[in-house]
Design a protein around this nucleic acid. Structure first.
Length: 444
RNA sequence: GGAGAGAUGGCCGAGUGGUCGAAGGCGCACGCCUGGAAAGUGUGUAGGCGGGUAACCGUCUCGAGGGUUCGAAUCCCUCUCUCUCCGCCA
């Protein structure tokens, strides 16, 4: 959510930024809405001032038992009441119009974000020093296979531990049932990632609600614009008017909203939260994409990281968070690359986003497994999340979120990267403690 | 699910139509006092919006949103949340 004052003062910068994002929003119509709003407020305030002054006098007259004077004064301001009520209605309308216009505008990209139309304009990122060699040294190498590596669903179905047919019978398409060692492998991956962030990266573990109100989704930016992507849970199916909660599309929603409507002290920042939760997405816009396998599901587990920082530290925190996400992939021995998303590919609330793309040998391609974004004060404004700065004034915090990482996709990656020619999957070293020491899934 | 009671500033708490953004206390900040500290004492101590270079002025906000009234923390309606008792329940 933008500050209209900022748009007013930086109309040109706003227009340029929107152009870069390929968005049609422009400052001028917003400024007009704001001017109307301010004119309405000024008029209303004037009328209220008159009324308040008169009411005070009436109060005094009544206190002095001067009934005649009180009556005279009351007659004098009687006409104001109508004006004020009309003014109040006008103000509500003007505020609502401006808000409705502002709340659907995407965030502005930071200056160092590559300008582009879509994912083809994303740029590979090699860390703060920009060295491909150093980056390559820090990351696991791409594995090579002497045979055509299989896709995860081929492996999983052959193992008899990944069942899309029965899942479809239970829940429809885009669901999966995992069994036996694969079920445990998914749990192991989640536990491993969560433990890593809690024990080594300084994140506070959170077990948040999976069902949230409208306000929470509004705070992180999913509502009102992306209503169609969400799953809703109806409180009482027999009720005439459906009272509903939303299934979280990501733990970003509850974790970020942990600080909503509060004024934090500067000393307690940064706050770092992490959670392992299921995520629910209806993926309405992308029917037909990735229909095979468990790459794109209506339900998946994800470990999420959220940081709440001051404005001064948010970009450093962004690099740190990316590093935390990379760490778990490196520990799992999974080859990956990092992309800086172009202005055309970024999400609604992001100022800058890194995607981590893991290598999937079965698909012979890189696929997104983590997305790490800095949102500036965009979400903070929607949530009214502030902190008290050194000068004593409340300022909006900055928020960041990142997957650390998607558990379902990590399972796919582990299967495809650790597969063996006989169709078995060896268990990465880091996960064996979570697998009761099991070293191989399937095989003889 | 049923019955009842509530929600006031950072915290506690008074206030049931009139000069109340709100007594009092605690906390906090600054000053005085002190060799230093404690105690004591004085002053200050919410947020949003509009206007103004600023000092400042105006306005709104007593859980949230509407309404009644010249005037609402106080009366009415709706919503949210909390607590107590009963019921149900992993």
């Amino acid at each position: 959510m933008f500050d209209i004052k900022w748009i007013r003062a930086n109309a040109e910068a706003f227009d340029t930024a929107m152009q870069k994002r390929g968005a049609a929003y422009r400052a001028q119509p917003l400024i007009e809405l704001d001017e109307n709003r301010r004119a309405v407020i000024a008029r209303l305030n004037e009328a209220q001032e008159k009324r308040n002054a008169a009411s005070k006098l009436i109060g005094q007259a009544k206190a002095q038992k001067d009934e005649a004077r009180a009556q005279a004064l009351m007659a004098e301001v009687a006409g104001l009441k109508d004006d004020i009520q009309k003014g109040e209605a006008e103000e509500r309308e003007a505020e609502a119009k401006l808000k409705a216009a502002l709340e659907v505008i995407p965030n502005i990209a930071l200056d160092d974000v590559p300008v582009g139309d879509d994912e083809t304009d994303n740029v590979e990122y090699f860390g703060p020093n920009g060295s491909p060699e150093l980056a390559a040294k820090a990351r696991p190498p791409k594995p090579s296979f002497a045979y055509r590596p299989k896709e995860h669903y081929e492996l999983g179905e052959a193992l008899g531990q990944m069942d899309f047919e029965i899942a479809a019978k239970l829940s429809g398409s885009r669901f999966v049932v995992l069994k036996s060692h694969l079920a445990r492998l998914e749990r192991a991956i989640g536990q491993f990632m969560l433990n890593t962030h809690v024990d080594e990266h300084g994140y506070t573990e959170v077990q948040p609600p999976l069902l949230v109100r409208d306000e929470a989704l509004y705070g992180t930016g999913q509502l009102p614009k992306f209503l169609a992507d969400q799953f809703a849970a109806v409180k009482d199916v027999t009720a005439e008017e459906a009272d509903r909660l939303w299934l979280i599309p990501t733990a970003e929603v509850p974790l970020t909203n942990l600080v909503r409507e509060s004024i934090l002290s500067e000393e307690e920042l940064p706050l770092r939260f992490t959670a392992l939760t299921p995520c629910f997405r209806s993926e309405a816009g992308s029917a037909g994409r990735d229909t095979r396998g468990m790459l794109r599901q209506h339900q998946f587990d994800k470990v999420e990281m959220v940081s709440i920082t001051t404005p001064e530290t948010s970009t450093d925190e962004h690099e740190r968070m990316l590093d935390c996400a990379e760490k778990v992939l490196a520990r799992l021995g999974l080859h990956y690359r990092v992309m800086t998303l172009s202005t055309g590919d970024m999400g609604f609330g992001a100022q800058k986003t890194y995607d981590i793309e893991v290598w999937l040998p079965g698909q012979d391609t890189y696929r997104e497994i983590s997305s790490v974004s800095v949102c500036g004060d965009f979400q903070a404004r929607r949530m009214e999340a502030r902190y008290r700065a050194a000068d004593g004034k409340p300022r909006y915090v900055h928020t960041l979120n990142g997957s650390g990482t998607a558990v379902g996709r990590a399972l796919i990656a582990v299967m495809e990267n650790y597969q063996q020619e006989d169709g078995s999957v060896s268990v990465p070293e880091a996960l064996r403690p979570y697998m009761g020491g099991l070293t191989t899934i399937g095989g003889r």
